[in-house]
């Protein structure tokens, strides 16, 4: 398995994670590692468990067996192997270390762009109002929205809302950023501005685990691509290898062929 040239030690370590919703097995013994500074992209057909995997990483979903570690700390449970949930306060503290950007933006509608970013900074990071404001303004500047600090989400376009969503996540200085199809709900002409922000974060060395259907972006921006099928990891490798038309992985080939048919 090849890796990003400047990748550091393993930051996210997912081992043999399984999860069922009722009787439906959604994740089957999923293992994957993300090293510090890496951008790992998850692709796969609808229903293959990509979202569920991301949600397990910051424990928005619990998992039934296996272990997820970030920086050596077990996510969600007291110790690997036990199914003893951590206390809510510990879960909250742990989640503050992972940023998440959602397909549907999920901005807090009653707060301005700056307010959305400041909430976590003041309530979770304990920063003073003024300091939180200046951090929020810094990140809004980074995503090209310095002039929208006092706009409410309803006054922003989808692309702008999503950039606020990204700023809200990275302002917390998470160890890893989780991005779940963050451009899927956007009009095509707004996709570019959001991907540009992600690309610039990647260049700054932000560790990312992302789900996307933007294959061109995945090819250019990822250190590695993980192909999921039926709740399991079916293939992992560098973008060129995974996205090659002549891959020997039957399911991957079918997926890519269908994908090309519907997107080009």
């Amino acid at each position: 398995m090849s890796e990003a040239p400047n990748a550091g030690p393993v930051l996210l370590d997912v081992r043999d994670v399984s999860k069922a919703f009722g009787t439906v097995e959604v994740l089957r013994s999923v293992s994957l590692q993300v090293k510090r500074g890496e951008v790992v992209t998850v692709i796969g057909p609808s229903g293959s468990g990509k979202t569920t995997l991301l949600r397990c990483v910051n424990f928005l979903e619990s998992y039934d067996s296996g272990s997820i570690r970030i920086d050596g700390n077990e996510v969600g449970y007291r110790e690997a192997g036990t199914r003893q949930r951590r206390r809510e306060r510990d879960l909250a503290a742990m989640r503050a270390e992972t940023g998440m950007v959602f397909q549907s933006f999920n901005l807090f509608p009653h707060l301005t762009a700056a307010g959305n970013i400041m909430l976590g900074l003041t309530k979770v990071r304990g920063k003073k109002e003024a300091e939180a404001r200046s951090i929020a303004e810094h990140w809004l500047g980074r995503v090209g929205l310095a002039h929208k600090a006092d706009s409410l989400p309803a006054e922003l376009s989808g692309g702008q809302q999503q950039r606020v969503g990204i700023a809200r996540a990275v302002a917390m200085e998470p160890k890893i950023l989780l991005l779940d199809e963050i451009t899927s709900a956007l009009d095509p002409e707004l996709v570019g501005e959001v991907l540009a922000v992600v690309r610039s974060l990647a260049e700054d060395g932000m560790t990312m685990l992302m789900v996307t259907h933007e294959m061109a972006f995945a090819r250019d921006a990822s250190s590695r691509i993980v192909f999921m099928a039926d709740g399991g990891v079916s293939a992992v490798g560098p973008p060129k290898e995974i996205l090659a038309a002549e891959t020997t992985n039957e399911r991957l080939r079918t997926f890519l062929a269908r994908f090309r048919a519907s997107h080009f």
């Binding site: 503290a93 940023g99 998440m100």
Partner: peptide
């Protein structure tokens, strides 16, 4: 989704209730 967003930035259950 809003509650998830509140969780994701690390708010505790009370903070999510109060602020989200």
């Amino acid at each position: 989704g809003q509650l998830d967003a509140g969780k994701a930035i690390g708010l505790t259950p009370w903070q999510r209730l109060l602020h989200v």
